[in-house]
């Protein structure tokens, strides 16, 4: 149970840091810690191959989300 608690605790810490950080791109850095923590806890909570898929799906999904937010914030690709 200790590893899950570690993961969850780090997640909470990361969530707090996201809230406290004023600058949008650097929020995303903390958000990625939260993603790692949640993805880890998913597998630790349910030790099954399906959980691996769930964790991967969550991780990829949230990474995609961060990517999209960051790219849109940056203004996207300038097309000519």
């Amino acid at each position: 149970m200790i590893p899950v608690l570690v993961c969850a605790g780090i997640g909470l810490y990361a969530a707090c840091r996201v809230v406290l950080e004023p600058e949008t791109p650097r929020k995303l850095l903390y958000l990625s810690v939260l993603n790692f923590a949640v993805a880890g806890s998913i597998v630790l909570l349910v030790p099954d191959i399906m959980a691996l898929f769930a964790a991967a799906a969550y991780f990829v999904g949230s990474t995609l989300e961060s990517n999209a937010i960051a790219s849109t914030w940056a203004g996207g690709v300038k097309r000519t």
Binding site: P25, S66, N67, I69, A70, S71, T72, W73, A74
Partner: peptide
């Protein structure tokens, strides 16, 4: 790799 990473 992407514009978002540059922004960060």
């Amino acid at each position: 790799g992407v514009s978002g990473a540059d922004a960060i």
